[in-house]
Design a protein around this nucleic acid. Sequence first.
DNA 1: GTTGGCACTCGCCACAAGAGAGTGCCAATC
DNA 2: GATTGGCACTCTCTTGTGGCGAGTGCCAAC
Lengths: 347, 347
Amino acid sequence: MKQPTSDISERAQHMLRVLIDRYVREGQPVGSRTLAREAGLDLSPATIRNVMSDLEELGFIRAPHTSAGRVPTVQGYRFFVDTLLKVQPLDISSVERMRLEFEPERTPKDLIGSASELLSGITHLAGVVTLPKHEHALFRRVEFLPLSEKRVLAILVTSEGEVQNRIITTDRQCNASELQQASNYLSQLFQGKDLAAVRSTLLAEMQEERSTMNRMMVTAIQMADQVLEEQQSEDYVMAGQTNLMEFQELCDIEKLRNLFDAFNQKREILHLLDQCVHGDGIQIFIGEESGYQTLDECSMVTAPYQVDGEVVGVLGVIGPTRMAYERVIPIVDATARLLGAALKHKD
Amino acid sequence: MKQPTSDISERAQHMLRVLIDRYVREGQPVGSRTLAREAGLDLSPATIRNVMSDLEELGFIRAPHTSAGRVPTVQGYRFFVDTLLKVQPLDISSVERMRLEFEPERTPKDLIGSASELLSGITHLAGVVTLPKHEHALFRRVEFLPLSEKRVLAILVTSEGEVQNRIITTDRQCNASELQQASNYLSQLFQGKDLAAVRSTLLAEMQEERSTMNRMMVTAIQMADQVLEEQQSEDYVMAGQTNLMEFQELCDIEKLRNLFDAFNQKREILHLLDQCVHGDGIQIFIGEESGYQTLDECSMVTAPYQVDGEVVGVLGVIGPTRMAYERVIPIVDATARLLGAALKHKD
DNA sequence: GTTGGCACTCGCCACAAGAGAGTGCCAATC
DNA sequence: GATTGGCACTCTCTTGTGGCGAGTGCCAAC
């Protein structure tokens, strides 16, 4: 019926597909008997065993021990998602249902939160969404309001509608009109300028003359920094971590703890997410591919999301290596699009 | 040597104390032999057994099964913390080290975060801190900034330096000066008024006449609501959840998942924390006392924290019932004081 | 190339036996 | 009367054993 192509036969590929499908569903090693039934090829277990032997030699599957069935290896999954998988797009009704989550009139922060919950809710895995970068944010205005003596509330607004605030202490007590003056001065001076430019200008100016508004300028710099910083050392929002406790392969307290610690630490995860900004589309890390030991038994499916044609962040899901990739991928993809669209109107 | 007082002898109390101490340290049921050695009373195991029998009858300890040692019951812990425990205050150096965490020049949000991390870090349990209420927050000013057409960024500042922002859509396109006008009008009108008052005034006014600034007013109401809301349906910050995975008594995935879900849901935890606002000082829920099944094997040690003599929030730790109460209590207490002090300067 | 047969390998489970820890009770002791 | 040593008893935990079931690899036959 089917004959071998290049170095892995059509039939073997089909078997691999069926095996992975079955294993993802059941979580148990798949034996030749089962596969024979499942494959629908009307072959005897013995034949299947030969094929499985080939697949094992290729490194796509392995036997946990002599007399268990086979489970996919990382390479197996890799081959599966790279060449065997044809992702069918989500049906329109699901997308429509998802879109409702992204009503307008919500701050970016809210939308990010919804996206991660949506991801985790639909996939039953952990959802993660990075905060969007503001690479092109421009200075819009700054406001200084007196609190108690020597304490001032500073508010910075960027062109993208991002609002930052922090409390600063001044050298001496400033009255409201002084502060007003400072606000106006800085706002006028920097209106519409790039935040990075604002920062360097301020720094230069401070070197030059120790103006009376020294403290204010330091603050302005700090705040500009804060905004800039937030775009570099990004942050992310996560939801549904507890979903991961359902999976036996992660049901080891040790692993679970390391995993959750990694989620809280954020560093490693961020590093991985960062790598996904570049690739233009769905990106997948399977098992050890991530390079982080804590994620050895996990996979990550990510997609960058764009606003106005520019990638501003990444979202995705984290789950056990044994995950239904063909189901997860379109969901991640769709969420990225929807989130991008929802954010678009905010600028 | 010692003779019985009322209904539980001095000696029995001492035994209970030693037993709990030992059990908290080792996590294993404590037998008569061990207790005899540990108690330092120079009594034989047989005598100890008699005393333990009494304690068991009183419901303070129980045997997990015949031929194991004894473990404290909830009542046992209760009696222990209520009458046996004398909390020694933290030594000054520790307090000083903690105080360094609470530098000034940080927003309340930051301080709250630090507090919860401090709690979890020192106790190796989960730390939790509610966001402070703003019961007496006054309207300070509101600002409207145009974003894209029909989209306006609204910023509300309260007397306590809290900044809220949200995006609203308007019926028609408003230009900058119109918005400026609206800002000024509302800011002047409500400056220094109670947020609740602002809200009701706005509502009344809206009924009366459909002013041109209708949409702005709706927003102002929404935002006032948001601030008010934030104080009722409080929220909290948590840290160190993963610490709880270390304890065998919680090392059941099922329990762990329920627990973490409860942390994310927040409702139950908030309800408990709420109950601690009133009692003036350390409050402790031991095991089932919380009334929530997910927390059956957990205890919670809380303390309200005050700003200017008024309780504005609660903080505490959550850990297994088997926790070193005498160590945890002073830490929670100190943290509450320090946080209160740190927040004080912010108003 | 495909198939049935067969010996073999493991993991898993139930069961039994033994060790260890701790108890309760009782009679002897201080 | 409180304290103690002794003793039988109970219960858990560990270890070892044997059987069962699932699945494999190989081989000879088709």
